[in-house]
Design a binder for these strands. Structure first.
Length: 284
DNA sequence: CGAGGTACCTGACAGC
DNA sequence: TGCTGTCAGGTACCTC
């Protein structure tokens, strides 16, 4: 799913539902999703009885802090998303919204955690790219130590100090520079700041960088308010769609008219990812 | 160390 | 209709 707003939405909703619950069992039809421990049997043995003490976000990673010094790490990659509800006889029921594409939902559920309150947390993942790991707090912490700061938590000075080189689009998406921003929100922030994605960071004026910093924060906060962007089958843990899709100005709008000036939105490749921009509002 | 390509999977959609 | 190619909220790993 998932960039910062979608991951944060997931974490916030799960916290309301699953805090202090314990895992009593786990099921999968795709054991390759679990990277640590390597054997699913070990994973199952280890997680049984562990209590959820906290749920945190670091970049796009979800960390369940468990009892006995253990952490459960989930990275949803492109199409993964965690759901909270009921899993009965191989079918999923969301807590609140029962009408959204139930068959599709069931088809992509590949991992189910059974909690001690007769509810389940499920991982739905069309492309099965997600990563799930259970290890000690220290081991998980170490794995995430290369991640850059969270864009919502840093000052402009810190932003300026960390976003220093390369093409601006790639710098924004580089998790070691700042963590949590991906293709959608980097495209959208650059459009709103009027900056061409291929511009070099070192060529940006301080004013442009400041503007970008502010637009990035604004857009991430706005997306958080509306629970993110739903592309493909993304749903919040409660089964709702994010509403940011309606606010997209360039992302996946190739060939359509810019809302500001009417020019046609373009799509180019930068480092094997696509970048969308308005050639008139975002001059190179 | 960094940049660029590929691999990991499955599905939707455009064009012939 | 059916086939082929391209694209998709991401990152790990390899080569140069």
């Amino acid at each position: 799913m998932p960039e910062l707003p979608e991951v944060q939405t997931t974490v916030s909703q799960l916290k309301k539902k699953a805090l202090k619950r314990a895992f009593i069992d786990v099921w999968t039809d795709a054991p390759k999703l679990i990277k640590k421990p390597k054997s699913f049997d070990d994973f199952k043995k280890k997680i049984k009885g562990k209590k959820i003490k906290d749920i945190q976000r670091r970049g796009k990673n979800i960390i369940f802090k468990l009892s006995e010094g253990q952490s459960l790490l989930v990275h949803q990659k492109l199409t993964g998303h965690l759901l909270y509800g009921r899993w009965k006889e191989g079918r999923w029921q969301s807590e609140e919204e029962k009408h959204i594409g139930e068959d599709k939902m069931n088809q992509y559920i590949h991992l189910v955690f059974f909690l001690d309150n007769n509810r389940e947390i499920a991982l739905s993942d069309l492309r099965k790219f997600a990563k799930v790991e259970l290890a000690s707090d220290e081991e998980i912490k170490k794995e995430l130590e290369d991640l850059g700061p969270d864009p919502l938590k840093i000052s402009f000075q810190e932003f300026k100090d960390t976003v220093r080189k390369g093409k601006i689009k790639q710098a924004l998406m580089n998790q070691k520079i700042i963590s949590g921003v991906g293709n959608i929100y980097s495209d959208e922030a650059l459009f709103r700041a009027g900056i061409h994605p291929l511009r070099k960071v070192k060529d940006l004026k301080k004013k442009e960088l400041k503007n970008l910093y502010q637009e990035l924060k604004r857009i991430l906060n706005k997306a958080l308010e509306v629970q993110g962007t739903s592309i493909s089958d993304y749903r919040t843990p409660e089964g709702k769609k994010g509403e940011f899709e309606k606010l997209l100005k360039v992302y996946r709008r190739k060939g359509k008219k810019c809302f500001n000036c009417g020019a046609k939105i373009e799509r180019i490749k930068i480092g094997n990812r696509s970048a969308h921009f308005c050639p008139h509002c975002q001059k190179k």
